[in-house]
Nucleic acid binder design. Structure first.
Length: 372
DNA sequence: CAAGCGTGGAC
DNA sequence: TGTCCAAGCTT
């Protein structure tokens, strides 16, 4: 398909005229991913399923492609359409999301599916503005869906593209302050005939060539316009504001087990840290020196005995939990939780930190059995 | 706008 | 071991 000469005549400096070599590179070296339509099809007007684009984009928020692939397959097998996801049991969605992190994404995913199914007749809005009104869809995801699934001329800016652009133009302004400038530069460079491929080409470039460390400038298709490379300081960008250090928190967790191997679980509050996910009973997690790390935080009296401790690092704090275990009789009351039998435990909505806790008390208890 | 919000892989 | 960080969103 012939491209108009617009990107050439519009060019005002060398660094704004890179869309052509970038797209040519993408046509040859694009990554094949389960939610993608290859460029030889998009150029013929064949666009990917908006549901699959949306699902993949939400999963990919702050998450690696390698981790997303498995979850994407599980989700699309269980819920092939937005209507199916809208009709799903919310707890089943949380269970399927367990381990992927940032669990508000799963809660918003379900809400968004319900809204699209009931208020939009099962069809995603095809504009950035329309998409942004939906839960869990912000600036980046709205632009990405609009461009990739609907071929809209949206300026897509993610972490990869921030890195590519700050290097191309040697932008010393730190992130996130530079965001507005970056967005304007992307909008100026974007070819209106292939906005979706342009966005994915920029992201592929950032993921495979213009990498955070040791960028492969030698094989970069747009190195000719890169100011940072010319000055030998590509790795210096993007400049970021310094991060605050992580405090340490401590606490105690209690694994109660019945003779049949069932473990007592309860559900965390629906918002905040690990919102809506399952956990074993435990103390608060506190940064105080006198934080509770003993059986004084036990949910009920029992023959609790220490069975080890686990460490886990969250985004904004590190956690050390002392793990206690007790064997309870068959008729022990679950209180406000439930007893999860060994066959169900691996499929519960347990975040990784809770799997570590249970593994410390009952090795192998949360591992999924390989079939065959 | 800064802070809250997970996890696992690379180095 | 630590450190960084990966296709960000919400409040």
């Amino acid at each position: 398909m012939a491209r108009r000469a617009a990107s050439v005549t519009d060019a005002q400096s060398f660094s704004t005229d890179y869309s052509l070599p970038l797209l040519a590179w993408y046509d040859r070296h694009h990554r094949s991913l389960p939610w993608r339509t290859p460029p030889d099809e998009t150029r013929l007007g064949v666009l990917p399923d908006p549901y699959r684009v949306w699902l993949s984009e939400v999963m990919l928020q702050q998450t690696t492609v390698g981790a997303v692939k498995r979850y994407f397959e599980v989700f699309t097998d269980a819920w092939p359409t937005v209507e199916a996801l809208a009709a799903a049991d919310a707890d089943d969605v949380m269970k399927a999301w367990a381990g992927l992190g940032y669990y508000s994404r799963a809660r918003n995913l379900k809400k968004c599916a319900e809204t699209v199914a009931t208020e939009y007749a099962g069809r995603f809005p095809d504009t950035e503005a329309g998409l942004k009104t939906l839960p869990g869809i912000g600036d980046y995801t709205a632009a990405a869906i609009a461009a990739i699934a609907f071929n809209q001329p949206a300026a897509v800016v993610d972490g990869n593209i921030e890195r590519v652009i700050t290097r191309l133009h040697a932008i010393e302004t730190p992130l996130p302050q530079a965001k507005r400038e970056i967005r304007a530069l992307v909008a100026k460079a974007m070819p209106h005939d292939r906005p979706g491929d342009f966005a994915q080409a920029m992201m592929d470039l950032g993921a495979t060539i213009c990498t955070p460390r040791k960028p492969a400038c030698v094989v970069c298709p747009i190195v000719a316009g890169c100011v940072a490379r010319r000055e030998g300081i590509a790795e210096h960008f993007p400049v970021k504001a310094p991060k605050s250090e992580k405090p340490m928190r401590v606490g105690a967790a209690f694994v109660a087990m019945r003779p049949d191997g069932s473990v007592l679980l309860r559900k965390r509050p629906s918002s905040g840290l690990l919102g809506g996910m399952a956990e074993v009973p435990g103390s608060d997690w506190t940064a105080r020196q006198d934080g509770i790390t003993d059986i004084s935080a036990a949910p009920f009296p029992a023959a609790w005995h220490a069975t080890g401790s686990i460490r886990h690092v969250f985004t904004h704090f590190a956690l050390e939990l002392c793990v206690f275990k007790a064997n309870l009789p068959d008729d022990a009351s679950p209180g406000d939780g439930w007893w999860s039998p060994p066959s169900a435990l691996p499929h519960e909505a347990l975040p990784t930190v809770m799997k570590k806790v249970i593994e410390a008390a009952i090795p192998g208890a949360t591992k999924k059995r390989r079939k065959g």
